[in-house]
Design a binder for these strands. Structure first.
Length: 708
DNA sequence: AGTTCAGTAAACAGAT
DNA sequence: TATCTGTTTACTGAAC
């Protein structure tokens, strides 16, 4: 340990010349080479800039829209008009990086740093957005309250016109609710836009989460309460004293936006007994926390909308339950009346939520909420269809992951991979192993091994990347990386792959399927936060692996030596062992439908299509090496995928000997063409060889592989 | 219990 | 000379 860290310092310090963090210290030498070809930041306007511009426009439009709406409802002189037209501040922090040219930035900053910068900017941006939305909410709250006060005053003055006033309140409240819904929609669309542009991670940052929470369904419900909490003029009169506008406005700007209206009497029990404000507040907090921490005490965010409960996990689904009754409370929007038992609830329901104007109005609003969600669902379903079409997948494909039970059935198959969170819910983090925003949720392919690698590390400085069991079948590298690349980029978690498979992946991922050692280093540091430290150790391991494994072939290039992958050797590296594990075979086959393999397959498909875009076609006929990809004993499905991808993109993985002359060939030279292939290749070979078509083959290749 | 595999450490040599 | 690159050996632990 001491020796290692000492040697690390010795080795890294001298090369740390340009003052950049030690993360990329050793890669400086060849970093220029790779950095030059790396198109992370081009000479264009930064996406953040564009995004910001777009945001401002969108927000301005949204704001104008709301202003229009509000002015139609509000008495003049409301708070709204005092606001300047555009309130979204343009943060200097966001803009300042653009004072430097992107090229300069790239020179100054290492890719990880650039990424960190980008993320910072995103966070800032989201914060501002969040604040903006909060303000909008507050303003609406205020409007609502002033309106209520006015109404109440009017009512006090004109006791006679009770009924008329009541209806007026109802209609205006409805209008407000609609505004809120629209605003929520705007916000959701905005977030979706950001996500589509890839500028907001699918997994939310903290800012993202709070932004979404700022207008999550619970807020809507909260507003519901306020709206429906003044159901009749009598109650309004009773509650007039309870309203405290000053505290409201001040509170609502606090860091607890959801509790902004906590002091408002949430609702009055229709029989006249209303809770004391204190109690209401307490209950509101309770209520809120029941949404925010609905189902788990851990970091995982519920998969279902906060305002809803998973149908299967609660009592209301039991016999004698009622969808509007749960946890001893009435679940009517805005009503929290405590009902000890079902009988009491039914009574309450019949008494308080009978067919009247208020109930129908509430029902209408609820319908609108549902409609919005349906629209959202339709949009997302459409997108899903497009994605699946693009990926040549049958929409009827079995669900790869353990799908959340409560998701709407239609088109929700892959929703969790997209930004399809109808309620604007934050994506749950993949793993609680690290506080750094893991960007993907999931039955995640992050295997257990990756989570406990640190714990079972042996006497050396770092734990083994991967042990055998996870090696072969459980954690396809392509799938894992495709799904968790952001996670590994940010989290200091050791990837559950061997160095060999990582190196191979890096090489195959490169445009020319060849990398210099330094580029391999850079790939490691770029893709994995974990490899930004202990550089001496893992770099040594990389070199060790490159030298040790025959599958890595050093090729003398114009620019120097590059490393390529000999797939034949790579597949030979480990003989098929599946036959030796009947249970495993069984699992694999049974998992065809919805098991991990299918998950891998789907994730790999995604990666495959990604790679299709990335890899420039090398016009070379498919080699026998490609065919051998169908060989069994993969330690990850990615090999297949990548190979198929190779076929598809007309850039088959060549045995290096075919196009270059390796200066050094390890031990026995690789038999390229007529390498004895397992007979079991069967059908896979025949149809995969001549077909340049891409993913279509995959569907059939995989079973072949699995049957081995 | 033995074998295999993977990770780590380190020595060494050649190239830059 | 220092550093990088590449090779090789030895050891350890885990999985099989």
């Amino acid at each position: 340990m001491m020796v290692e860290s000492a040697s690390e310092t010795i080795r890294t310090t001298p090369s740390n010349q340009n003052g950049v963090s030690s993360l990329s210290s050793q890669s400086d030498g060849g970093g220029g080479r790779e950095g030059g070809s790396n198109g992370d930041t081009n000479g264009e306007i930064s996406p953040v800039d564009l995004l910001h511009l777009q945001q401002q426009q969108a927000l301005q439009a949204a704001r104008q829209f709301l202003l229009q709406q509000a002015s139609g409802l509000n008495s003049p002189g409301s708070n709204e008009v005092k606001q300047s037209p555009v309130q979204v501040p343009v943060s200097m922090a966001m803009m300042s990086p653009q004072m430097i040219t992107p090229q300069q930035m790239q020179q100054i900053l290492s890719p990880p740093q650039l990424q960190a910068l980008l993320q910072q900017q995103q966070a800032l941006m989201l914060q501002q957005l969040q604040e903006y939305y909060k303000k909008q909410q507050e303003q609406l709250h205020l409007q609502l309250l002033t309106q209520q006060q006015q109404q109440q005053q009017q009512q006090q003055q004109q006791q006679a016109g009770k009924q008329a006033a009541k209806e007026q309140i109802g209609s205006k409240q409805l209008a407000f609710q609609q505004q809120l819904i629209q605003m929520q929609q705007l916000q959701q669309q905005h977030i979706l836009n950001l996500q589509r542009q890839g500028l907001v991670p699918l997994q939310p940052t903290a800012a993202m989460q709070s932004l979404q929470q700022a207008m999550c369904p619970s807020d809507l419900q909260q507003l519901w309460k306020e709206v429906s909490g003044v159901p009749s003029s009598e109650e309004a009169l009773k509650q007039a004293e309870g309203l405290d506008l000053s505290t409201n406005s001040s509170n609502s700007t606090s860091a607890f936006p959801k509790a902004a209206s906590a002091h408002i009497p949430l609702h009055s029990l229709p029989n006249g007994q209303s809770h004391t404000p204190k109690r209401d507040r307490a209950r509101l907090f309770e209520w809120i926390s029941s949404f925010t921490k609905a189902d788990s005490g851990d970091d995982h965010v519920p998969l279902y909308p906060k305002g809803s409960q998973p149908p299967s996990s609660h009592h209301e689904e039991h016999a004698g339950s009622h969808p509007l009754y749960g946890h001893g409370e009435c679940k009517w929007p805005g009503c929290e009346a405590l009902c000890e038992d079902m009988g009491q609830f039914i009574k309450h329901l019949n008494n308080e939520h009978a067919l009247d104007d208020r109930s129908t109005a509430q029902c209408r609003v609820q319908m609108q909420v549902v409609q919005q969600l349906e629209i959202q669902l339709a949009k997302e379903s459409e997108r899903l269809q497009a994605m699946m079409t693009h990926l040549h997948m049958r929409p009827s494909e079995p669900k790869p992951y353990n799908q959340p039970l409560n998701l709407a059935s239609s088109g929700s198959l892959l929703k969790r991979d997209s930004d399809a969170y109808p309620e604007g819910l934050p994506h749950p983090p993949t793993s609680a192993a690290t506080p750094i925003t893991p960007l993907r949720q999931g039955p995640s392919v992050i295997s257990s091994s990756s989570l406990h690698t640190h714990s079972h590390s042996h006497t050396h400085a770092v734990g083994p990347i991967r042990r055998r069991n996870s090696d072969k079948y459980c954690t396809p590298i392509a799938s894992e990386l495709a799904q968790n690349c952001e996670f590994y980029k940010n989290a200091d978690v050791r990837p559950p792959f061997t160095y060999a498979s990582l190196i191979r992946h890096a090489i195959l991922e490169s445009p020319d399927r060849q990398l210099t050692l330094n580029e391999i280093y850079n790939w490691f540091t770029r893709k994995f936060a974990y490899f930004r430290r202990n550089t001496a150790t893992w770099k040594n391991a990389v070199r060790h692996n490159l030298s040790l494994h025959k599958c890595f072939v050093r090729v003398e290039n114009v620019k120097g030596a590059v490393w390529t992958v000999d797939e034949v050797e790579y597949q030979k590296r480990r003989p098929p062992k599946m036959t030796g594990s009947p249970t495993l075979v069984k699992n694999m086959i049974s998992g065809l439908g919805f098991g991990s393999l299918n998950a891998s397959y789907q994730a790999a498909l995604a990666e495959s299509s990604l790679s299709l875009l990335n890899s420039p076609p090398l016009v070379t006929p498919p080699s026998a090496a490609s065919l051998n990809m169908l060989h069994v004993g993969h330690d990850d499905v990615s090999s297949t995928v990548e190979q198929v991808n190779s076929n598809g993109s007309c850039s088959p993985t060549l045995s290096p000997q075919q196009y270059s002359h390796p200066v050094h060939v390890k031990e026995e030279p690789t038999e390229v063409e007529e390498d004895s292939r397992p007979v079991s290749l069967l059908a896979g070979v025949t149809h995969s060889l001549p077909l340049p078509s891409d993913e279509r083959d995959l569907e059939e290749d995989l079973p072949t592989e699995e049957l081995e």
